[in-house]
Design a protein around this nucleic acid. Structure first.
Lengths: 223, 223
DNA sequence: ACATTTCCGTTGTTTTTACAACAAAAAGAT
DNA sequence: ATCTTTTTGTTGTAAAAACAACGGAAATGT
């Protein structure tokens, strides 16, 4: 259990608490019984089948949202990082258990809010709750749009098209044709749903043909 | 333009307005300048690039959420029906233009609420707005979970696995091993991201091998 | 610096898919 | 009922992906 104060500024600036002043935020943190927890590398924060009643906010680190297809194949649905929320949709959907795992890819610090407890208590009373839910709505909207984008990525027919679609999207996010990615090769393959070695092969081909340049995890989109 | 009253009961029972009494609902409908609009078959309700500031609720009919991959290939992201919302995530994400098309697959009736207008006016004032956003949050959560499920469907490696995953999910939704699907073959192929003829072939093979039985759009999961 | 482990690229082989072309069946129109 | 159009199933072929096996590079630990 880590001290909350240490991360107060970061918490304050996260999208979850957007538009709140200090007084409101502190009240909210107390009402939600906020705490900070540290997870080791490769630790599971959420498991398939869990009932989720907490809001999880990543303060630092990286987390994979994964799903095990029934024969051991791993699907990486998304890679989350600082200021992202985990499994928010399962908080919003009452009585639905998590269909995904959340696994840290490195040591990770998470802020945990007991959503259940507070909402049942303060019901219509607290004003902050209204701001919060408004923020959550917007965060979920963004998540939704990113899922659609992911569907676009994995729906391309060839490995080449998947890679180029993914790179285009990354370049756009970074406002630059040069960008680094968080994934290693295996993770990228699991994200794009292709075989790693086939993907590696396609990457070199793309480089030889002059579409991209890369060195380790740094990529450049040419032309 | 259709008369609102005719559909009042259905509107009242939709998830968007869950938990509101008549007075609140009527106030809300007025505040949001609610109207009902009829779309013909194959008409576009939303286009890629549109800025979405309305809440769309399907009263009757069916709508495809699609995306055109840049070489004519069509991706069906989801098929929506009665009581579903269109493009809600683009309402929540300010200043983000739609990345999808919404196209009717048959004559469709839609309730349209001018979300923008009301929220900017009544700001923190109206109580109903709080209930509404709470509902929207839950609806978006469900959408989110369904998108994750779709990712699971299309992330299977073989056509057979995609079909069986899809069928399992449908059977579960219907609480029965026998169920009808809305898609015709081409649409199902575009949804699962596979070639139609290859899929047809795989379907007959699955039937021959005794895994499924089907007649037209009615399927049964055996074993 | 050395050993060990993890990660990455390459190649050949097998499996699966996409694509094209066509026939049969079903649905719609007159 | 007849004709037309749309949908669905079947087959062969070419393209692409998965898989397996391996060697080298890079990272990690001691």
């Amino acid at each position: 259990m880590e001290r909350l104060e240490k991360y107060y500024n970061q918490i304050k600036n996260s999208p979850v608490f957007y538009g709140m002043n200090d007084e409101e935020l502190r009240g909210l943190l107390e009402c939600f019984n906020a705490r900070v927890r540290k997870y080791e590398k490769e630790e599971m924060i959420i498991r398939q089948g869990d009932m989720i009643s907490n809001i999880y906010l990543i303060l630092d680190g990286a987390v994979n949202i994964e799903k095990d297809s029934y024969w051991g194949r791993r699907i990486i649905i998304s890679r989350l990082g600082k200021n992202d929320n985990l499994a928010l949709s399962f908080v919003g959907s009452k009585d639905v258990e998590s269909s995904i795992d959340a696994i840290t890819v490195e040591d990770t610090l998470v802020l945990i809010l007991g959503y259940e407890k507070c909402t049942s208590m303060c019901q219509n009373a607290c004003v902050r709750h209204k701001v919060l839910i408004n923020n959550l709505f917007q965060i979920l909207s963004k998540e939704n749009i990113e899922l659609i984008q992911k569907i676009e990525n994995v729906s391309q027919k060839t490995i080449r098209d998947k890679l180029m679609t993914y790179f285009s999207n990354e370049a756009q996010k970074n406002h630059s044709n040069t960008f680094s990615i968080n994934f290693n090769r295996q993770d990228l393959a699991d994200y794009l749903n292709v075989d790693r070695s086939a993907m590696s092969f396609e990457l070199s081909k793309l480089q030889k043909e002059g579409f991209i340049k890369y060195d380790k995890n740094r990529f450049e989109l040419l032309s």
